[in-house]
Design a protein around this nucleic acid. Structure first.
Length: 498
DNA sequence: TTTAGGG
DNA sequence: CCCTAAA
């Protein structure tokens, strides 16, 4: 086992210097490792077994497998424990994702590459949970529909025969999401355990989780003093995830950059961790302290990104400012507390962090979930097309990440998707079947209907149209589709100049 | 400042 | 999503 470890780490060393130091230290004192090997091993097995249960998700399977095999490979004490964290964290996260219908899963994997994949996964899952939870909390008039649509989408979006379990999953997720907000601010481990329990309720999977749970609670006691262990938890998992990824892939330049960034952020968690570790194992301490020092240096180089939730507001405004739209919110220090009363705050927070660490112009987009689209359509049918700010204020006031422009863009896309607009000239009609995430037909019908009622480019009479109205060239006003004002639609088609 | 339209 | 022109 040691041999394999050394070998792996060797390649790894050549891969990245910084991490190499870390690894070397770990390698320097492998003696005590055997103590924890058993636990790690057993957990790895369990985990592996668990992952095997998910063979329905091809990519999920792959990731899961990597996770557990990683646990096998690196069994130095320190890392071993981190491995455990990652194991529980990741797999449970993944489970959530799977249960939630995988709606965004593929997207996420697609979008984030390499190292961010793992990190993004766990985060995204929570995002997703929170999204849904928040929708529910808001309620609005589309409450009941949301549920059905949710189920719909989940069953639609996954090809293999998983629709059955996914339907049940919706219900489960509902109950589990309730535990998220309160436990989140408390401690991540417990949260995970709870979530896992809830999700595993329908199956016997929960048994598999027991080792992780125990360890998690153990860790909890260590961390006791800190109220944001989840962060450190996440960081730890992230780091080890990164490490694992590295063994599997050639490190890219961007990868390295990101890693240094992550490391700096990890400092906080690492500090606690080493402090806590002092009580337990003197052996680990030294290596970890040194490691810690290294990280501290890294931090100096990259001092941004404070991990605490409260301070992250700055980051939010930073991003906002960049986006330019809600500029006026920037100077205010607590704009979110009003706008995002519940969990969505942290949700936005997380996303922001995820995004803000990119210097490049990479699109930071947030995928539209079905309830959101529903809301958008509702809003359009209510206020009409083009009143994007209105709709934003009324229905999306809680989601700061959706600007009116976003709404409009989404509507444009919806029109295209529903085929209500521009059949692509050549009538290619690349219908939604090829779409990555098909929309429910009912929704599409609504979109089409709305499109008929008020065509997207809300016709505003320019001088030209006013003049040309005398002899409407080839626009036979109410001919095609007949804007007969269905259901009190506003006659936006062709307004008179006067 | 908001919309529309194109990239 | 982003940017820009027009209103």
């Amino acid at each position: 086992m040691i041999s394999t470890l050394v070998k792996k780490d060797d390649s790894f060393v050549s891969a990245l210097e910084d991490e190499a130091i870390e690894v070397e230290h770990l390698l320097a004192e492998p003696k005590n490792d055997n103590v924890s090997v058993d636990g790690v091993l057993s957990f790895g097995e369990e985990n592996l077994g668990k992952c095997l249960q998910m063979e329905d998700f091809s990519c999920g399977f792959e990731y899961g497998l990597r996770t557990s095999s990683g646990g096998f490979d690196s069994n130095t004490t320190q890392e071993g424990e981190e491995e455990l964290h990652l194991g529980s964290e990741f797999s449970s996260s993944f489970e959530n994702y799977a249960l939630l219908g995988l709606d965004g899963f593929l997207d996420e994997v697609d979008e984030v590459d390499d190292l961010e994949a793992t990190h993004g996964l766990s985060n995204a899952c929570e995002d997703f949970l929170l999204d849904i939870e928040f929708e529910k909390a808001i309620g609005l008039d589309s409450g009941p529909r949301e549920a059905s649509y949710l189920g719909n989408s989940s069953s639609e979006s996954q090809s293999p025969g998983l629709s059955g379990s996914s339907n049940g999953a919706v219900g489960i997720s509902e109950s589990s999401t309730a535990t998220i907000p309160e436990s989140e601010c408390k401690n991540g481990a417990l949260n995970k355990a709870l979530t896992c329990e809830l999700h595993g309720g329908s199956r016997s999977k929960c048994g598999c989780q027991t080792p992780a749970e125990d360890l998690a609670s153990l860790e909890l006691r260590k961390y006791d003093d800190f109220d944001n262990d989840e962060k450190s938890f996440l960081e730890a998992s992230t780091i080890s995830a990164v490490l694992r990824e590295k063994r599997l892939r050639k490190p890219t330049r961007r990868y390295i950059e990101e890693l240094s960034d992550k490391k700096s952020r990890c400092l906080k968690g690492g500090e606690k961790y080493s402090a806590a570790a002092t009580k337990d194992t003197s052996l680990k301490v030294r290596s970890h302290n040194e490691l810690h020092n290294i990280r501290r240096r890294a931090l100096k180089v990259v001092p941004r990104e404070k991990p605490l939730r409260g301070t992250s507001i700055q980051l939010v405004s930073e991003v906002r400012a960049r986006r330019g739209r809600p500029k006026k919110q920037a100077p205010i220090l607590v704009p979110e507390s009003e706008e995002e009363p519940l969990s969505s705050e942290s949700e936005d927070d997380r996303v922001t962090k995820k995004r803000s660490k990119k210097h490049d112009r990479r699109k930071h987009q947030r995928m539209w979930i079905l309830p959101e689209v529903m809301k958008l359509v509702d809003g359009i049918s209510e206020h009409g097309v083009g009143r994007w700010t209105e709709i934003k204020r009324q229905l999306f006031s809680t989601s700061a990440y959706r600007t009116p422009i976003d709404l409009r863009d989404k509507w444009r896309n919806l029109l295209r998707a529903s085929g209500a607009q521009k059949p692509n000239k050549k009538g290619v009609e690349q219908k939604q079947e090829h779409s990555l995430r098909p929309l429910p037909n009912s929704l599409l019908r609504r979109v089409r209907e709305l499109a008929k009622m008020h065509p997207y480019p809300r016709v505003r009479m320019s001088k030209k149209s006013c003049l040309s109205q005398v002899a409407p060239p080839m626009l036979p006003g109410p001919s095609k589709g007949a804007p007969s004002n269905l259901g009190g639609g506003r006659s936006v088609r062709r307004k008179n100049c006067t």
